[in-house]
Nucleic acid binder design. Structure first.
Lengths: 148, 148
DNA sequence: CTGCATCCTCTAGCCGCTAGAGGATCAAGC
DNA sequence: GCTTGATCCTCTAGCGGCTAGAGGATGCAG
């Protein structure tokens, strides 16, 4: 049976070593076996589980949602309605983000189009930022715009 | 001359009180005057400055970018090329996010379309998460997908 | 046996806030 | 004048989802 060091698992899944340890810490990954010198040893199941986690994270699922999805995947007899609901919810979240970002894009394009090359005092960009009433779109909603 | 308490400023700009104090702490807002009993007192200029900050945050500008934009707004004789550059950069960031989110949406829609109603073991959603090779799109890139 | 890669644990930092403790002060009603 | 409740103050800690670094123990190749 194959067994991997944390570094090999990291390379196999393209997930960084500290991130793997972090996932273990928050309980997404089980505590692995250890060598005599306390090094973590992983198997095929861990590779699959970590790939699952990575994929779900790429799709924007929150850790708590992934926890639920993993619980479902671990217990194939449970009804999967919850998984569908989580996927639908995540889809709604993503669609909401897209809409908001498109409104921002319109606004930024308007600002960029009025590209000025003079002094900051006449700058359209700064003017537009200072006066929200110049905005065509309503890009309100949550102020939190994290990294993609 | 009008002067506002922090609470009134918060209501006037729709920015929460602790957030205003936070902006002061990180130097986006200047330290305001104080009453004898140490309460902050704001004026019209603060309302404008905070509205500027809020608007820029809504557009997704990072605090450091806002710092630069404020410096430009404060000194209208400086050339505004930097402001245009910041706006263009932010536009590129937003467009990148939109593209990535659209890829995620495609994938999530595919998952949601195959909506199953049986056991988790047969669930398309879970299967799709477990096997990235089922994905049509390449939604790779940065794993960090923050809140909108 | 040297030297470097990898591993371990632990703590602290990132961003942009948000929440709460524990206390002072203000404004309005009686 | 007194009480009550809203608002204010400072300070510290927490959120999510990692990431970075200290300081040390192993492992493996030449």
């Amino acid at each position: 049976m194959t067994s991997l060091s944390i570094g090999r698992l990291a390379r196999a899944t393209d997930v960084k070593v500290p991130t793997i340890r972090f996932y273990e810490q928050i309980g997404l990954l089980p505590e692995p076996e250890r060598t005599e010198s306390d090094r973590r040893l992983y198997g095929e199941a861990d590779v699959r589980r970590l790939a699952f986690i990575k994929h779900a994270r790429q799709l924007g699922f929150a850790v708590e949602a992934i926890r639920s999805l993993l619980a479902l995947a671990d217990d194939p007899d449970r009804p999967c309605a919850e998984a569908n609901a989580l996927a639908a919810e995540q889809l709604a979240v993503v669609e909401g983000k897209i809409e908001r970002l498109q409104a921002l894009r319109r606004e930024l394009r308007r600002m960029a189009r009025a590209d000025c090359d003079g002094r900051a005092g006449d700058c359209r960009v700064i003017e537009a930022l200072g006066d929200h009433s110049l905005c065509a779109d309503d890009h309100d909603g949550p102020t939190t715009l994290g990294a993609l």
